[in-house]
């Protein structure tokens, strides 16, 4: 599964994208965030305030309870400031 990061989430994690193999039991965005936070302090830092970081599955905004089944690309990013 491909993960992509933007803005300060990208800076805190220190990479633009990565491909991960998820273990059994990681079924939702919230599960994925918990798993990432356990991977290292850069992830802990990026997700220190989980409620702030937004997620998208295959270019569509999703909530933390969204299922990962069938997802190709998951994105994590701060609240948007375009326009």
């Amino acid at each position: 599964m491909k993960l992509v990061y933007f803005a300060w989430v990208r800076e805190r994690i220190g990479k633009t994208e990565e491909t991960v193999e998820l273990p059994e039991g990681i079924a939702t965005i919230a599960d994925l965030v918990r798993w990432l936070k356990a991977k290292g302090e850069e992830y802990e830092y990026a997700f220190e305030n989980e409620a702030v970081v937004r997620a998208a599955i295959d270019h569509v905004h999703v909530k933390p309870e969204a299922p990962l089944a069938g997802a190709r690309e998951i994105a994590f990013f701060p609240p948007m400031t375009g326009g």
Binding site: F6, P78, M80, T81, G83
Partner: peptide, 25 residues
Amino acid sequence: YLKTRAPFWKREHLKDGTVGAWVEA
């Protein structure tokens, strides 16, 4: 809708040549 839903992020570049903070929503 664009302001809050379109995936764009702004960061400030300052007159003194430094890169400033990400703009907060």
